[in-house]
């Protein structure tokens, strides 16, 4: 018997992820300013002297997280972007896991290895996912003529479908292992059909793995959104202005803000970049912590201590 230690990553991760979900729901309603509120260039009298106030403004009582170069309140932008960041990520991860589990189960249960599927998995594992997603959405996303909702739906569809092979691959391998066990053999000899075996015998054995994959996929989707942001493709549309060439996120989704403010790394006003970075890292960190917690939890339940 081993004594169970408190699994802190699991607890903290659960709390943080719940907080993020709540933030996604109430975010736009508790934002301190309107979305189009802009702090204009103006002068103020401080100690009898006239001072010109020029955005980007540093974090202060009026603007808790400061403003960006165009005078928009960063906290407001982040709160308005939160639903997109969180629910788009969750939607993609859920769809991936749902489709991937189904495909993996049905392909894993086949008597012969499915050559065509193996070659799909193989080819897909070489290509980083953000490249096909980027090229697919590039034509419609920059200065879009489609509504934001359509673009978000397009991204969800593309990222989910293109991510299926990697999820299906691990489910398939697990299914192939379980297919060989005695209890499946017993079920077959008792006359169980394919669905019976898959959903009564195989799925209960991999359900924990499916949960872990779901959370890890969430992190992967966030990374994908961040990478697309690096190359100026933002979820829900990129607004591109010419002269100077600038890219803005239309939904103010966190990865998009991070991407569009990345030029401020080198500036004298680093908070414009650091605050979206902190928000994005907070979201990724919460999900990674949850994933680690879940993984530790299942490992403690099933694994033996190594001898060496």
């Amino acid at each position: 018997m081993q004594i169970r230690r408190t699994n802190w990553p699991l607890r903290i991760g659960t709390v943080l992820v719940s907080f993020l979900v709540v933030l996604g729901i109430v975010g736009p309603h508790i934002a301190p300013y309107e979305l189009d509120f802009q702090e204009k260039l103006h002068s103020e009298t401080v100690n009898g002297k006239t001072v010109i106030v020029m955005p980007p403004l540093a974090p202060s009582a009026e603007h808790w997280l400061g403003t960006d170069k165009w005078g928009y309140d960063l906290l407001t932008l982040l709160l308005h972007g939160a639903p997109y960041t969180i629910f788009v990520t969750l939607a993609v991860a859920l769809l991936r896991v749902l489709l991937g589990t189904l495909v993996g189960l049905y392909i894993g249960i086949q008597d012969k290895p499915q050559r065509w599927w193996l070659s799909v998995e193989n080819a897909w594992s070489y290509l980083p996912l953000f490249i096909p997603v980027y090229f697919l959405l590039r034509g419609v996303s920059i200065n879009p003529e489609l509504p934001t909702s359509t673009l978000v739906a397009l991204f969800i569809g593309a990222a989910a479908v293109l991510g299926v092979p990697s999820v299906a691959s691990s489910i398939r391998q697990k299914t192939e292992q379980i297919k060989e066990t005695q209890f499946v053999l017993a079920a077959v000899s008792m006359g169980a059909g394919r669905e019976q075996i898959l959903f009564r015998h195989v799925l209960p054995h991999i359900k924990e793995q499916v949960i872990v994959i779901l959370v890890t996929e969430t992190v992967a989707v966030m990374t994908l959104m961040g990478l697309l942001g690096m190359f100026d493709l933002f979820i829900g549309g990129t607004k591109m202005t010419y002269d100077p060439v600038l890219f803005h996120s239309m939904t103010h989704e966190w990865a998009g803000l991070l991407g569009s403010y990345r030029g401020f790394v080198y500036s004298n006003t680093p908070w414009v970049f650091a605050i979206p970075l902190a928000a994005f890292m907070f979201a990724v960190g919460s999900f990674s912590l949850l994933a680690k917690g879940l993984r530790d939890h299942f490992r403690e339940t099933y694994q033996r201590t190594p001898y060496i």
Binding site: T223, G226, L277, G285, L289, K292
Partner: peptide, 8 residues
């Protein structure tokens, strides 16, 4: 470190 995405 692994919790930080690679591009960050």
């Amino acid at each position: 470190i692994a919790t930080v995405p690679d591009f960050v």
